[in-house]
Write a protein that binds this DNA or RNA. Structure first.
Length: 292
DNA sequence: AGTCGAGCCTGCTGGC
DNA sequence: TGCCAGCAGGCTCGAC
């Protein structure tokens, strides 16, 4: 499930194939993704070049020479694969064919770099949008909180965002307006690293005056650390995530609590057993002993 | 306004 | 062995 580290891994894989390359051809096998593809999708892309491929939260943003921005989202099950000038019947291509069902190849870009970039998404929760560069800043999808790895994601900022919340810490961290890019996995992992209970009130990150508590300090450090570790590992591959070269990420082997119900809590000296509970309709994994 | 649950969608898993 | 309910979850929308 693509969260920030998986999307960043994908961005790094796509950049050599797409940056400073132009679209030679665009095939849309299916228009009905999470939202329909933009009108005249292929016509608006062909001939344009990608000036920069960046990431904001879980969104990939391709700045185009046409003045538009291509917003791409992997949803739950989306992946990109890059074939570097290979014909579809080479061993490399067959490897990909085995790893992903071709019936879910919805969009194919042929780039002037020689690469073929294919978007595959069985569940079709992903999408692609085209907006003008001027519209991007104001776009509803971009009205989200700070990038967790940026310097301006500080304990002060997190405390301020949570100070007036009545919900629990788990739900607050999944709220993309509080901090952008976290999903179920990395929220569980960060809370365990910070030894904070997912059931704690989010407002306890701030003092009555709105200043950050030590909890907020620990949590911000834990969020940054887990995301950096996960990016270094190429993200987590549970069911869907793959790198653009078809390889799996490896961070799932380093999960402390996610999908580890019944296992020992890895916190040093903690005798706790990882529990799974439901919060807001989602599974939460945590240690009831050290996470207070 | 903030919060929460339903729904979107498909593939995999586990229980009978 | 086969079937089917349940689950996975990022995001939006509607209800309260």
């Amino acid at each position: 499930m693509p969260e920030l580290p998986e999307v960043e891994t994908v961005r790094r894989g796509l950049a050599p194939a797409m940056e400073r390359a132009s679209f030679l051809a665009v095939q849309a096998h299916r228009e009905d993704l999470r939202w329909p593809l933009p009108a005249n999708f292929a016509r608006r892309l062909v001939g344009a070049s990608v000036e920069r491929l960046s990431r904001r939260a879980k969104y990939l943003l391709a700045d185009l020479s046409s003045g538009e921005v291509l917003i791409m989202h992997l949803g739950m099950s989306g992946s990109f694969r890059v074939l570097d000038g290979m014909a579809e019947d080479t061993p490399g291509a067959l490897h990909f064919a085995r790893s992903r069902s071709l019936t879910h190849d919805h969009v194919v870009f042929r780039m002037s770099s020689g690469a073929t970039v294919t978007f595959n998404d069985p569940r079709r929760f992903g999408f692609m949008l085209l907006v003008s560069r001027a519209e991007l800043e104001q776009h509803p999808l971009m009205r989200i909180g700070p990038e967790p790895l940026d310097e301006d994601f500080t304990p002060e900022r997190l405390a301020r965002a949570c100070a007036s919340k009545v919900t629990n810490l788990k739900a607050a961290l999944l709220d993309q307006k509080v901090v952008a890019g976290l999903g179920n996995i990395y929220v569980c992992e960060a809370l365990n690293r910070a030894r904070l209970s997912p059931r704690r009130k989010a407002s306890t990150l701030a003092t009555r005056a709105g200043a950050p508590t030590p909890h907020a300090e620990r949590l911000v450090a834990a969020i940054k650390a887990v995301l950096e570790d996960a990016i270094a590992a190429g993200g987590s591959s549970l069911r869907d995530h793959r790198r653009t070269d078809g390889e799996l990420g490896s961070f799932q082997h380093k999960f402390r609590v996610y999908d580890r119900e019944g296992g020992r809590c890895p916190t040093r000296g903690c005798p706790g057993i990882v529990r799974r509970i439901a919060q807001n309709g989602r599974s939460t994994f945590f240690c009831p002993v050290c996470q207070k």
